[in-house]
Amino acid sequence: MASLKDFRVRIASVKSTQRITSAMKMVAAAKLRRAQEEAIAARPYSEGMERMLGSLAESAAASGNAPPLLAGNGKDDTHLIVIMTTDRGLCGGFNGAIGRWTRQRILSLKAEGKEVKLLIVGRKGRGILRAEFGDMIIDTLEDTARPAPRFETAAEIAQRVRTMFETGKFDVCTIVYNKFISALTQDVTPQQLIPFALPETDEAKDDDNEVKGNAAYEYEPNEKDILTDLLPRNLSVQIFRAMLESFASEQGARMTAMDSATRNAGEMIDRLTIEYNRTRQAAITTELIEIISGAEAL
């Protein structure tokens, strides 16, 4: 049986763990608020871009001269998957969920006989996928969201992806990230970047209607030139948005994970304290019995 000292040591150790987890929870909560604000602040830009892209894509498709970034290069043999994960752990099932999705996706693409390449953002994603798919990983980008996601970083990733596309290193590019639903829930969301597919949301449909109602736009210089400029830009914006969403989700996931860790530590402390007291009382009782029986023997 454990001695009283063992109990005291264990209780002290669980208490210090609890202090750490509850501090991490507070930090994650503060970061989450900021991350959410940033994600909301970035919305007008991507909405504006989607609105323009929607009307441009329609007229470009009609005239049949859409650039490769929009229409694809006609092939579907090599897939690039950009995976958004975190640099640090202790955030619950966040990275595991992304890892599972990616694994299934890779296996189903392999089954169709396609080639797969992976570009991983975040140290944790590499750890998850290296063992099984190490030979597919092109590169891992680390510390992209420190202290917070920046547009320049997204633009660099986009530039890299675009260069690879233009030199024929892949045909289809998908990004997968945790979409922020609430502090408690994240949703693994894949989005196709190249060829770019406009997300089919209700908002987008509303905007389309508005555009049609507003009559056609004039384009300066012309659809094709604007699209050539707009599409690479849109790539950066989409990646930036994924980074923001992923960052907010990470903070949410960490907050939830640390909250339950703190609660578990509390429960463990209670249990240990009860057992500690019981043992202490048992020791006292034993001592008393010894004294009494000693006295009786005299």
């Binding site: 323009m52 009307s55 441009l56 507003n214 009559a215 056609a216 736009y217 004039e218 384009y219 300066e220 210089p221 030139d225 604007i226 400029d229 707009l230």
Partner: peptide, 13 residues
């Protein structure tokens, strides 16, 4: 280009 109220709808780089 200048934008005054009533400008024709346009998208430009």
């Amino acid at each position: 280009f200048g934008c005054l109220p009533g400008h024709a709808p346009m998208i430009s780089t």
